[in-house]
Simulated assay, not measured.
Amino acid sequence: MFHIPLTSLRAQFGDIDIYLFDQLLKGRIQKGMQLLDAGCGAGRNIAYLMRAGVQVYGADISAEAIKITRELASELAPTLPARNFVVADLDALPFENEKFDVVLCSAVLHFARSEEHFKAEVRELWRVLKPGGMLFARFSTTIGLEGKLQQLEGRFYRMSHGPVWFLADEEMIMALEREIGMARLEPLKTVLVEQERTMTTWVVRKVV
């Protein structure tokens, strides 16, 4: 019997978010789909997708991150145009309405500059998503840590590891779902990290 070495997993899938990997296993991301990684950083969540034939796009506020991602794409998927990867704030994406089958936004939304900025980012991610498409977002929230974090002004909190983050709560997320017209693909899933922060996975579909 031939065994695939466990060490090949990292070579194949890289540093992809395990919760995004779950969406791959569920068949929600397919070859040929147009997918935007909003806040793509250096491309850790899209390296495998590039090799798998997904039509990947990326946006990030960091010019250096986009430079690295373009270099990654040129190596892994040379047919992907460099123009697919753009420097942009997530509240002003340079893409047409309803362009993408899937929009990813992993570990980004808690860096919002205000509640208005957070909501504008979510609405912009929704604007570029096709009807029937999936938004996958993972971000820090107050869920599971209510009353245990150092709250500053509004929805800003001093995190135990130092930075100040904008943290939505479940009520705010649900209000956005109702306002925008989102349909849950899965229940909210929140992971508690050492009583220091929580990371919530939000997977919703754009109703046709």
Rank of each mutant, 00 (worst) to 15 (best):
E75I: 08
L76S: 03
A77E: 09
P78M: 12
P78T: 05
T79E: 15
T79G: 08
T79H: 08
T79L: 04
P81N: 15
R83N: 13
R83V: 07
N84G: 14
F85L: 09
V86M: 05
V87L: 01
V87M: 06
V87Y: 00
A88G: 02
A88R: 02
D89L: 15
L90D: 15
L90A: 15
L90K: 13
A92D: 10
A92E: 10
A92T: 09
L93G: 02
P94E: 14
P94F: 07
F95M: 11
E96D: 06
N97V: 02
E98S: 09
E98T: 03
E98Y: 00
K99S: 07
F100Y: 10
F100G: 06
F100T: 14
V102M: 04
L104H: 03
C105R: 00
S106F: 01
S106T: 13
S106D: 13
V108N: 08
L109E: 10
L109W: 03
L109D: 13
H110D: 03
H110Q: 01
F111A: 09
F111G: 06
A112N: 10
R113I: 11
R113F: 02
S114F: 01
E116I: 01
H117T: 11
F118E: 14
K119R: 12
E121G: 04
V122S: 00
V122L: 04
R123N: 14
R123K: 15
E124S: 10
E124M: 00
L125K: 06
L125Q: 06
R127M: 13
V128S: 09
L129C: 07
L129K: 06
P131N: 10
P131C: 09
P131H: 04
G132T: 07
M134S: 10
L135A: 12
L135K: 07
L135D: 10
L135Q: 06
F136P: 04
F136L: 09
F136C: 11
A137F: 02
A137C: 05
T141R: 10
T141Q: 04
T142G: 00
I143P: 00
G144P: 01
G144D: 09
L145A: 03
L145H: 08
G147A: 12
K148T: 09
K148L: 12
K148W: 07
L149F: 08
L149A: 01
L149P: 01
Q150S: 12
Q150Y: 11
Q150M: 11
Q150A: 11
L152P: 00
L152R: 01
L152K: 04
E153G: 15
E153H: 14
R155G: 15
R155E: 11
F156S: 03
Y157P: 06
Y157S: 04
Y157W: 07
R158D: 06
M159E: 12
M159G: 07
H161E: 11
H161C: 09
H161M: 11
G162S: 08
G162F: 12
P163I: 12
P163D: 09
P163Q: 12
V164Q: 04
V164F: 03
V164R: 03
W165T: 13
W165H: 15
F166Q: 12
F166D: 08
A168C: 03
D169I: 01
E171H: 15
M172R: 07
I173D: 07
I173H: 08
I173C: 13
I173G: 03
M174K: 08
M174H: 06
A175S: 15
L176P: 03
L176W: 05
E179M: 02
I180E: 07
I180F: 11
G181M: 00
M182C: 06
